[in-house]
Write a protein that binds this DNA or RNA. Structure first.
Length: 1049
RNA sequence: GGGCUCGUAGCUUAGCCUGGCGGAGCGCACGGCUGAUAACCGUGAGGUCACGCGUUCGAAUCGCGUCGGGCCCA
């Protein structure tokens, strides 16, 4: 049984009802079970990080995933669709620290690592639950009951196992490296965890005194004064020219300075020197023999023992002084140069960002960034400061706690990704990228620059590194699974997290005791192993053998350096191949102006607010249709509103036939469409819906979600609502069991049942709601949910391209007629006697002429033969330039002759080649002497369409007037029915008083028609009759006053 | 500074891959419909297709460069 639905699309009600239905019927699981045994489609959910609420970007991400998965399911695929959660790492630690009011690692140690871990864990789990609800409210169907979670033991094992593979392949190494270091979190952080923004920093020029040369200095520039105590060398470029310069101060003293020749002016200006002379110029190489002293050597004892030299380096640029200060303990390039030149890797800074005792008593314990002014002062006191200022530049910060990072040399664990670079480049060629450039350009570029992956973090809440080292012999073991650990330890280990795992001691083959290294994994390593962890590999390999690698993943373009990369890296280590076959890269969500959404600008749009206002289907359809997936989405409320409006139109189109179907007890099983001859317009809309399905399939194959949704939108608005529904409306009012009406019902049913299936992946709630009522309501044998249905696909034999084309012309002509009517001042309610269609082509309107007739409200539709036009009035004008030279003095007469004659006659004469006779004279007129213009007669209003011109004859006759007035009266009575809120089939009594006898006379012939149209049992019309009824209203139509009263019969 | 990407009407955008009259929606102005009606429809105005150079018979589309936005890197 179908039921009527409310007149306004109310997404909240629709979605609540559907959600409840899915819940009650366990629809998700039924759908998944239904597809068991189908072609496998392995999707890996890029795990969102469990902190805070979901934002618009995350919502978009999941909507894309869900739409594609629903589509794949309808296409018959068995899905692997576990949702994933990224639950370890600093961000959560930072949140928990904030919550507990902690400021440093020491606070955590004091509080107790076990309690801290518990807090992190419960925080992550709580967040996961909250976010799950939010995703569910968007209609996202993933395996929410059984998600993969990075904090689970079986997940941790996947990471362990992968590291063990790295070790076995000789790709794991420990080394002193300069890393990005967060002094607050006291851990190394990945390049991808560094966030850059502008920071005001010192900008100083420092003079290093050259050994053995009196009053001579090498000049360097730096923005990190605090690294000067760790300076052990300087670098120059081999191609640059350098000069030794005598620089004079205002007071007449001078110094001898060494710097790049091109930069002398700049440097001396900074140092406020008044004059200079170049003593000597040399190439970079010529400086290599120099040595210098660190100006702070009296404060930093180890500096006294270092030999400070000059070295060549390519990274030196012709900026500032052209000489670069090298502190191998505090810079990546410095470190590499240090290794190469065997410089001391001097790093007198501790993990807390404070100077160690190595920096000397004066600096020890001071936080390096705070120490900047002091270092500058000390340099000045020692005459080593050439200039001091400030500048604003981009500086790196810890992604999570926003502390400016520092570079320090520490011992870390690395995976030698750089060894795998070439294989990775080969492997990504085999992956299908959407769009293509995401792989061929963007990702390729990133891989080409791939550096070794620092996987260790000096933190707590993460997957512990499964590396045990013997205290006696220093040998190292990497443990691959929990079982292996328990076997080696000889006892059970409940939780693989810290601190429990820290207590596990292993026996070394040397007989000594092995201890775990205290580090945890970089959190990027967690999600990197997702594609096999989600299959519970290595704990079991059954699923892995069947499903891996992933068929499809999709994430935002920031994940190029993130998850696309980390997964590839880990998979290359573990399996030597890419873990995914196709990747869709999507964009970012920005505000309407294309700015980043941020709390400080106050332009953040929350998905739940959009859902609240317009519903989840609207949000879904909006983000999918707004632009191409890989482009950034500029969110606009107006855009969302328009989608909502479109869905409302769909709702109205769906709702409109329901009352009639119910009234007529329409039975689809008896409405075998082949038994009723469908009208051409019925076959047209069916053709269109099949064409639509085809279009969608083609675009889905390329993940062109914007084209898919736009095709749907066009179909709903243009074909269904604006056209077909308009055409079909009168047929539903027929009250008998007319086959034509049943054909209309059957067509509507067919079209709507296809349409809701085509919509199901994108607007799952609305599609389900319509399906439940209309489709299941009419066909009890229909499947329980629209999401269980097979993708309807398309039938070539139902697609009639020529019919579609014909209908396109019919629509164009109808629109042109509207245009002409507007120009001619004839409302659509008033019939016209005829329209004439003129085209140079043979227009194939097929059997759609009746459609044209009703839609244009025209008594006759005349399609003229190709090239023909209605008879035109001809206008002739003379071309003086041509007449003058020929007729000279008689020109005036000739012009008079031409203009005073009937243009048609002039034309005939010219064409016949005969002379024109005028006032007893004859003139030979040629075609070039005149110009003819065709003017349609006043009653024919022309309007263009793509293939020609349509002429509307607006001549009024009494019959047309009578019908026009009759329709005016009908419309007003209908309006009043509405006011009285009558049911569509309720009968009424009507009185109509007109103040025009002429109109009354015309209309009286239409009395029966009016009565039946408005369902009147009694209709009284007169010039001056008594009027009474429940509702009385006065109207005015073209100067005629009409008083109408209506009462229930 | 480098890689990728985007720039089309007041706003949001399609078209670009594969060259052939630049399309929508919103907003604006005017009109229509009235058995979808707090809904819907039509018409109109509105364009330096960011800018410049090139390729071509022909460029929004292809190439190079410049400017501006986004992501990523240094």
């Amino acid at each position: 049984m179908i039921v009527e639905v409310p007149g306004q699309y109310n997404p909240k009600n629709v979605e609540d009802e559907v959600r409840e239905f899915w819940q009650r019927e366990d629809t998700y699981h039924k759908v998944r079970r239904l597809r068991a045994g189908g072609r496998r489609f392995f999707f890996v959910d890029g795990p969102p990080y469990t902190t805070g609420r979901i934002h618009l970007g995350t919502a978009w991400n999941k909507v894309i995933k869900d739409s594609i998965l629903r589509y794949m399911s309808m296409r018959g695929h068995e899905l692997k669709d576990r949702a994933g959660w990224d639950m370890h790492g600093l961000p959560i630690e930072v949140k928990v620290e904030e919550h507990l009011g902690f400021r440093s690692k020491k606070d955590i140690e004091t509080y107790g690592v076990d309690r801290f871990i518990e807090q992190c864990k419960s925080f992550a789990l709580r967040q996961k639950d909250e976010m799950t609800e939010q995703f569910k409210s968007l209609g996202v169907w993933l395996d929410w009951d059984n998600p993969y979670m990075t904090l689970k033991n079986e997940y941790i094992e996947a990471a362990w196992w992968t590291l063990k593979r790295a070790h076995e392949r000789g790709l794991l190494e420990r080394g002193l490296r300069v890393v990005n270091w967060c002094p607050r979190c006291q851990t190394a952080i990945a390049d991808s965890e560094v966030e850059y923004w502008d920071e005001r920093d010192p900008s100083i020029y420092v003079k290093f005194p050259v050994e053995g040369e009196e009053n001579t200095y090498i000049v360097i520039w730096t923005t990190t004064p605090w690294t000067i105590p760790a300076n052990v060398a300087v670098a120059v470029h081999k191609d640059f020219m350098y000069s030794k310069v005598r620089a004079w101060r205002r007071d007449g003293t001078y110094e001898i300075l060494i710097m790049a020749t091109d930069l002398i002016e700049n440097v001396l200006k900074q140092g406020r020197y008044v004059d200079y002379e170049i003593l000597e110029s040399m190439r970079g190489e010529d400086l290599l023999s120099l040595t210098y002293r660190n100006p702070l050597q009296d404060l930093v004892p180890p500096q006294r023992d270092f030999v400070h030299g000059v070295h060549l380096a390519d990274f030196v640029t012709a900026e500032n002084t052209g000489i670069v200060h090298i502190a191998p303990g505090h810079g990546l390039e410095d470190y590499e140069l240090g290794l190469e030149k065997r410089l001391p890797i001097f790093c007198p800074v501790g993990e807390d960002g404070r100077y160690t005792s190595e920096a000397g008593e004066k600096y020890e314990g001071k936080y390096v960034r705070d120490a900047n002014p002091e270092v500058v002062e000390d340099l000045m006191d020692r005459g080593a400061l050439l200039a001091s200022g400030e500048l604003v530049h981009r500086y790196g910060h810890c992604w999570r706690c926003k502390t400016p990072i520092i570079f320090i040399a520490t011992r870390q664990w690395f995976i030698r990704i750089s060894d795998l670079r070439d294989q990775m480049l080969q492997e990504i060629e085999r992956v299908s990228w959407y769009p293509e450039w995401a792989g061929s350009a963007r990702f390729k570029d990133w891989i080409s620059n791939a550096r070794d992956w620092c996987i260790s973090r000096q933190r707590y809440w993460g997957i512990p590194l499964p590396i045990w080292i013997c205290r006696s012999c220093g040998s190292m073991d990497v443990i691959g699974t929990a079982a292996e650990l328990e076997m080696r330890a000889g006892r059970a280990v409940e939780d693989l997290h810290r601190p429990a795992v820290d207590d596990v001691r292993l026996r070394c083959s040397c007989g000594g005791e092995m201890e775990r290294v205290p580090d945890v994994f970089d959190v990027w390593f967690d999600s990197a192993v997702a594609s096999w962890a989600t299959l519970n590999f290595p704990r079991e390999d059954k699923e892995f053998n069947v499903w891996w690698p992933a068929d499809f993943i999709t994430e935002g373009h920031d994940q190029t350096r993130g998850w696309f990369y980390s997964q590839l890296g880990a998979s290359m280590v573990a399996f030597g191949r890419a873990p995914y076959k196709s990747v869709l890269m999507h964009g970012f969500t920005l505000d309407e102006q294309g700015r980043k959404m941020s709390k400080s600008i106050g332009n953040v749009v929350h998905p739940e607010d959009v859902v609240e206002r317009y519903g989840a289907d609207t949000l879904r359809f909006y983000v999918l249709s707004s632009n191409a997936p890989w482009e950034d989405l500029h969110f606009s409320w107006e855009g969302a509103m328009n989608v909502n409006r479109m869905l409302n139109i769909l709702w109205n189109a769906y709702r409109f036939p329901l009352p009639y179907m119910i009234l007529d007890k329409f039975d689809i099983s008896k409405a075998d469409t082949s038994r009723y001859s469908l009208r051409p317009e019925d076959r047209w809309i069916i053709s269109r819906v099949n064409s639509l399905a085809k279009e969608i399939e083609e675009n889905m194959a390329e993940y062109m979600l914007h084209r898919v949704t736009r095709s749907l939108q066009d179909f709903i608005l243009e074909d269904l609502s604006r056209w077909y529904i308009q055409l079909v409306r009168p047929r539903t009012w027929i009250e008998t069991d007319d086959p034509d009406k049943l054909a209309a019902y059957a067509t509507l049913y067919t079209v709507m049942s296809s349409l809701v299936k085509l919509l199901a992946p994108f607007t799952p709630f609305l599609a389900e709601s319509i399906y439940q009522n209309l489709v299941r309501g009419l066909d009890p044998s229909a499947l329980e949910s629209v999401h269980m249905c097979d993708w309807p696909g398309y039938r070539e034999d139902l697609i009639d391209k020529r019919l579609e084309e014909s209908m396109r012309y019919v629509r164009e002509i109808s629109e042109a007629v509207s245009n002409a009517r507007q120009k001619g001042g004839r409302k659509l309610r008033w019939p016209v006697s005829r329209i004439m269609i003129s085209s140079d082509e043979q227009l194939d309107l097929r059997d759609l002429v009746h459609v044209l007739r009703t839609q244009t409200n025209s008594k006759d539709v005349i399609v003229l033969p190709p090239g023909e036009k209605p008879e035109m009035n001809l206008e002739v004008s003379v071309v003086q330039k041509k007449i003058g030279p020929v007729f000279k003095g008689e020109s005036r007469d000739v012009v008079e002759a031409i203009t005073s004659m009937n243009p048609r006659e002039v034309k005939r004469i010219i064409e016949s080649g005969a002379p024109l006779e005028w006032k007893g004279k004859s003139y030979m007129i040629t075609g070039e002497m005149v110009e003819f213009r065709e003017i349609p007669p006043a009653n024919l209003i022309p309007a263009e369409f793509s293939k020609g011109i349509v002429y509307v004859d607006i001549t009024l006759t009494d019959e047309l007037k009578a019908e026009g007035y009759a329709r005016e009266i009908i419309r007003r009575i209908q309006d009043m029915r509405k006011d009285l809120d009558l049911k569509v089939d309720e009968m009424i009594r009507v009185s109509v008083a007109l103040d025009s006898s002429e109109v009354l006379g015309l209309v009286s012939g239409w009395k029966d028609h009016i009565s039946s149209e408005v369902r009147a049992t009694l209709l009284r019309m007169g010039n001056d009759i008594d009027i009474e009824g429940e509702l009385t209203k006065d109207w005015e139509v073209d100067g005629v006053n009409i008083r109408v009263s209506v009462a229930r019969a």
